[in-house]
């Protein structure tokens, strides 16, 4: 397997604002409102490679454009996967694409998850809802470079059992050696025999080596704050805890100003930040 470079290459010669059409080769329904689109190149020009945690600006002809994290395997060249929840006009248009339709792509943009810094350590992946999507490339990467990392712990919470993404994959990952997968839901229902409660209730089942671990967290801000408090209380240094942030974006490269968060631009300084960077700002109402 060809190794992917974990360094950033953000130099771009093409016009940053022009979307490149890519064809939808697969649409997979993950949950009642969430779909994973697989994009492949329309012509001979390959799609750009990406680093886990990066996002693209996806454009639907005549409708609009949105930042969407890449959710596929970084080593599967030539394809880009995006897991999209239908919440508005453009996301609805995106998930309504049929196989053979094209979508415009700009990017990838942004700073990646710290897969280099995490080498040799246990990796704790904590996700809430669709927050698992930007973390799935991390899981793919670690599983392909198993010897480079310690234990892989995946803690995943969703609103209800039917809102859990990638359920078959979660099952198969849980059967791998040195991989622990725990899921929990807010509302279980009669047929659910798993955990019920917010994702932090799963920490009691995890043997955390706080000075030998890196945590990567993505979910609603309130969830990330509680996860961070919980992990801090368990001794994980703030610099070893990473979160993925989200804000309105129009450009993806720091020009439009929309994604500002305190001193940061989420698009170019993030979307992945250390908790040390985010701690003074997270939880500030209407920041």
């Amino acid at each position: 397997m060809e190794a992917i470079e974990l360094e950033q290459d953000q130099t771009s010669q093409v016009d940053t604002f022009q979307p490149v059409p890519a064809v939808v080769s697969q649409v997979r329904k993950d949950t009642p409102d969430t779909f994973t689109l697989t994009l492949e190149p329309e012509g001979a020009e390959p799609l750009p490679s990406f680093l886990p945690g990066q996002f693209s600006m996806l454009y639907v002809f005549g409708v609009g454009e949105l930042p969407i994290s890449i959710s596929g395997d970084p080593q599967e060249k030539g394809k880009l996967l995006y897991t999209v929840r239908s919440v508005g006009k453009t996301t609805h248009a995106l998930v309504s694409r049929k196989v053979g339709d094209s979508v415009g792509v700009r990017g990838p943009f942004g700073k990646p998850w710290p897969l280099k810094a995490a080498r040799g350590k246990d990796v704790l992946v904590v996700a809430g809802g669709i927050g698992l999507a930007p973390l799935r490339p991390v899981i793919y990467y670690i599983l392909r470079h198993r010897a480079d990392y310690g234990r892989l712990v995946i803690l995943y919470g969703a609103r209800s059992p039917r809102d859990l993404l990638y359920q078959k994959q979660l099952d198969s990952w849980s059967r791998l050696p040195d991989v622990q997968v725990l899921t929990t839901v807010d509302y279980g229902g009669l047929s659910w025999h798993g955990h019920v409660g917010v994702v932090t209730t799963l920490f009691r089942y995890v043997r955390l080596q706080p000075l030998h671990s890196v945590a990567m967290v993505c979910g609603p801000e309130i969830m990330m704050r509680y996860v961070a408090w919980e992990l801090e209380a368990r001794g994980l240094p703030q610099g070893d805890l990473y979160v993925s942030m989200e804000r309105n974006m129009k450009c993806g490269v720091g020009f439009c100003g929309h994604c500002q968060f305190g001193p940061y631009f989420i698009c170019k300084d993030g979307p992945i930040f250390t908790y040390r960077e985010m701690r003074p700002w997270l939880g500030k109402y209407e920041l």
């Binding site: 604002f17 022009q18 979307p19 059409p21 329309e42 002809f61 053979g100 339709d101 094209s102 415009g104």
Partner: peptide, 14 residues
């Protein structure tokens, strides 16, 4: 104007 595009079958062309 950042770009103009025309529908081209199920895709588009700038």
């Amino acid at each position: 104007r950042l770009f103009a595009a025309r529908r081209d079958g199920r895709s588009f062309r700038l």
